[in-house]
Amino acid sequence: MTFLALVRHGETDWNLHGRLQGSSDIPLNSTGRAQASEAVYELEGRRWDLLVSSPLSRAAETADIIGAHLGIERTGTYADLAERHFGAAEGFTDYDAWSRWPHGHYPGLESRENLIVRGLRAIDEIADMHPDSSVIAVAHGGVIRAIVGALRGIPSPRILNAGVSTLVRQNGKNWTVETINGVPAQRTR
């Protein structure tokens, strides 16, 4: 069995101001650093074998803060855990993006299908490389939401900053979503 805790990074100034971050590398703010420290309360009490993150600095720093509290070092990054690329809309607020592209198809927008494929590929790769392990993977709200929604077959709720969602993979193939933002979930893929 592989136990995977998907943790969303802490808050950034762009989160605070409702801007689409996507693949832009925006750092944590002081609230985000505090949220990363608080996420530890949900993660402590289990032995963790591995800590990894998206390559974006807000996820890497969140992972490093969590790791410092839990006594585990971040040992790798997975490009497939990066946030969805919003193309020309990155840096815009939702309203500004909508007023410019009311159809929601921003130039350069990564498709939801691609986001799901690479998100599932990332968690499968982590589990394949680290079977029978407990892993913390720090990523982004969009990719976590895509993963959880695909596994459950229904849309996922919004993933909170520093929210912890947990998955279990049994027998090397089937994932079960156990929690979303720390709240018990049901339905499997």
Rank of each mutant, 00 (worst) to 15 (best):
N15Y: 02
N15I: 03
L16E: 08
H17V: 02
G18E: 06
G22S: 06
S23A: 15
S23N: 07
S23H: 10
S24C: 09
S24D: 06
I26H: 06
S30Q: 15
G32D: 12
G32T: 12
S37H: 14
A39T: 11
A39Y: 11
V40L: 11
V40P: 08
Y41D: 14
Y41W: 13
L43S: 09
R46Y: 12
V52S: 08
S53H: 13
S54L: 06
L56D: 02
R58L: 11
A59R: 10
A60H: 11
T62A: 14
I66Q: 13
H69V: 02
L70N: 07
T75H: 03
G76S: 06
G76F: 10
Y78G: 00
Y78D: 12
Y78H: 14
D80T: 03
L81Y: 04
A82Y: 02
G87D: 03
G87R: 02
A88C: 02
A89H: 01
Y95V: 12
A97M: 03
W101G: 00
G104C: 09
Y106T: 00
Y106I: 00
G108Y: 07
G108L: 07
L109Y: 05
S111E: 08
E113D: 15
N114Q: 14
L115Q: 02
I116S: 01
V117A: 14
V117D: 14
R118M: 04
G119Y: 02
I123R: 04
I126G: 03
A127Q: 08
M129Y: 04
H130I: 02
S133Y: 04
S133T: 05
V135I: 15
A137V: 10
A137C: 10
A137R: 05
A137W: 09
G141D: 09
G142H: 03
I144C: 09
A146F: 02
I147H: 00
I147C: 03
I147V: 15
A150T: 04
G153M: 00
G153C: 04
P155D: 09
